[in-house]
Each structure stands twice: as C-alpha cells, then as structure tokens.
Amino acid sequence: MDDYLRNSLSTMPLFAGLSEATLGRLSRVAFRRTYAPGMLILLEGAPCESVFFIVTGAVRVYRLSPQGRQQILATLGPGQGFNTAPPFLPEGRTPASVEAIGETTVLAIRQEDFVALARTCADFSWAILQDFAAHLLHLTDLVEDLALRSVRGRLARFLLEQADGAYVTRPWTQDEIAAHLGTVRDVVGRALRSLADAGLLRMERGRIVLLDREGLEAEAGA
C-alpha cells in the first residue's frame, strides 16, 4: 500500500472520520497526480472519468460564456474535492473547467471506484455528503451574490472573505477578481476606486488594505 496516499487521505479533514478499513480501500484505488501552474485539469462538458481531492496547492473552478467571459465558481484548496457530482448521474459530464493555480497535487479516484466506495462504505458516503453540502451552500451564496448584490457589494464581500481567510487566500489580479464577481476588470477598478474614495480601503503597491470593517460589511449586505 502506498504510504503517501494513505497519509494524504488520513490528514484530510473530509476523511477524518473514515474507518481504517475504508481508508485502506480508498488508498488502494486513489492515485496521485501533480499539475503545473495554469494547467487545465478538467474541461467543462468532457465525460467524467475521475473525481479529485486536493492534497497541496489550489485550483480554480470556472465556466466560460460564449463570449469568453470567465465566471469563477470556486477556488478550492487542500482537502477539498471537485468533480464529485457527475458519477452519481447517468452519463454525467464534467460540469465546469478546473485549472491549477499553483503547482497542485491531487488524489484522483476513477469514477467506477468512487461509486463503488459510495455504495458500500457508509462512512465514505457521509464524508461525500458533507462535501456536497459545503459546495451547495457555497453555490447558494454565489447565486445570491450574482442575483441580488451590486458589483460594489459583491466586491466588499469578496474583500472581507479574502482578508479574513474564509477561503483560499492568495494575491489576486483585478482580472481574477472580476472573474470571481461575474463582471469585467474595468468595473472592478471603478468599484475599488469608489470604495477607496469612501475611505473603506486603501490601494497600495501590491496590496489592497482594508480600513473599515463596519463600512465594508454594510456595503456587502447592501
């Protein structure tokens, strides 16, 4: 048995509750893959072959509009899974493209092995349900953001989440922020300037410094 696989699996919070027997089965079917920064891991619409769990690094999950505009659905980090839904659907296809942000190592499990584990190991099914629930709540928040908040409000919420370390935190370009917020770079630039003019943040060289939590929370809730 591959000790690296077993150690990687047992240190993931998602799999912390698995029995030794389930961890053993999982480590026999999982395999390791490492992707260079910017490498495409999955392409939207492709047949689902494997599911993935991140060991180190981070990935960007996104969809592209016909005009080429990118909407980032999630930025995922160590311990989080992706492409876990299609195996439960008949002829399920990969729902979104996934790209490595930095060098990223994942554990992959072939679809048929993943389904077999989910059918026969209740503790594994429970862990996957928890992962599904987290994804569902995140996507619910995203729909609320896109449907009900202004770009300025979405930006304020995004900045608070990043500064508070709610998700994977890293330096961002304004294009990447725009892709997260479902808008374009120019609009993000204007929104940043307007928040700066209101005294809620300060733009520095390579840093967006948040100054007023109450003010930003009021913007985020607006």
């Binding site: 500064a163 935190t169 330096p171 370009t173 410094v209």
Partner: peptide
C-alpha cells in the same frame, strides 16, 4: 495576451 500580471494581497490595516 495576459503576459503582464499585477497582483494584490488583500489584508487588514
């Protein structure tokens, strides 16, 4: 072509 990147850390004061 996206060959230039200017990144920003997002931090509290």
């Amino acid at each position: 072509v996206g060959a230039i990147t200017c990144t920003f850390e997002i931090v509290w004061k």
